[in-house]
Amino acid sequence: MPWCTHSEIRGISNQAQKIHDDIRHGHLLIHAHARDGHTTVVVGTYVHRGGKSVYLHGEDHLRQVADTFDSPAQALTAFESVHAAEMRPGPAPLTDTERATIAARSVFDVTTAKSEPSRPEPETVPVYLADAGDHDALLDSFLDAHGEFEKWRTWSDDTTHAIHESQTLRIERVHETPAHEPAWTVAAYETPVSDRAWVLTATGTTPAPVLQDLLAHLADGDGWDTRVGAPVDEKMVTAAAQPLSDAGWKHTVDGRWIR
C-alpha cells in the first residue's frame, strides 16, 4: 500500500484486525469462500448488528469489507454470480500468518499454564470438620446485626463480652487462648441477678459455621428460655436430643452426665 498515508494504513489494519476478531469469536459467521486471483474473498453474516451480511476481500492485514447485503440469501446469490467456479462452502483455509499466530499463542498459553501454581480443588467436608475461621470477625458481624446485644471490653482488651438487653444472656469471647481451651462461654440466667441456669463453652478450634449457627439460634430468643419448669427427665432429654438421634448420633448416660 505505497500510495496510502500512515494514518490510512493504520485504519485499514485496524479494520482487518476487527474483522479477524469477529470471525474468531463467532460474531461473524462465514458461509463460503473463493480464490480471486492472488487473494481470498469470503461472504458471511454478523450474528448481531442487525444480521448484516458482508462480502470480504483480501487476507490478513488487508482484509476489508467490500460490500454489504441485507440478508444471507442476497449475499450468497451475489457471491455465487461472481465466484461460482471457485466457490467453496465454509471459512477459507488459514493463511500462513494466521497459522504462525496460533502457534505462537499456543506456546505462550502452555508457558503461562506451567508458570502458574496449580490450585487444589475445593473439598467438601462435614461442618464439624470445617476450618475454624475468624472468630473475632464472626462476633463483630453478629453484634453489628443484632442491636439487642451490647458489646463490652475488659480493661486488658483480652476479652469481649456481648450482653443481651435483658441481662439474662451473656457471651464471653476470650481472644487469645490455647487451641483446646474455652474461647467462648455462653451463660443464661433466669433473672439478671440469679445464678446461671446453664452454661456452654466452645474452644478456639470450633468451626466457624457451628458458631455462626449457635449465635443465630441465640439471637432468635427461643434458644435460651430460662423460665423455671419441671425437673429435667429422660423424656425431656430424648426430645431435646431428637435432632442428633435423627442424624445418627448415639448417647450414653454416665451417672449425672449424658454423652
Rank of each mutant, 00 (worst) to 15 (best):
S13D: 04
S13F: 01
Q17G: 00
Q17A: 06
K18W: 01
K18G: 00
I19F: 01
I19H: 00
H20Q: 15
D22G: 01
I23H: 02
I23A: 04
H25Y: 11
H25K: 14
G26T: 12
G26M: 13
L28A: 07
L28G: 04
L29E: 11
L29K: 09
I30K: 05
I30T: 09
H31R: 13
A32G: 04
H33S: 05
H33M: 06
A34H: 06
D36W: 08
T39D: 13
T40H: 07
V41I: 15
V41E: 14
V41P: 13
V42A: 13
V43Y: 14
T45A: 12
T45M: 10
T45Y: 10
T45N: 08
T45D: 11
Y46I: 11
Y46W: 14
Y46Q: 10
V47K: 13
H48T: 14
H48F: 08
G50V: 08
K52N: 04
V54H: 07
Y55C: 02
L56D: 01
L56W: 03
L56R: 00
H57E: 05
G58K: 02
G58V: 05
E59F: 00
E59W: 00
D60G: 02
D60W: 06
H61Q: 12
R63N: 02
V65L: 02
V65K: 03
A66W: 06
T68M: 14
F69D: 10
F69N: 09
D70V: 12
D70K: 14
A73I: 10
A73M: 08
Q74N: 12
L76P: 02
F79W: 10
S81L: 07
S81I: 01
V82H: 07
H83Y: 15
H83S: 01
A84V: 11
A84W: 06
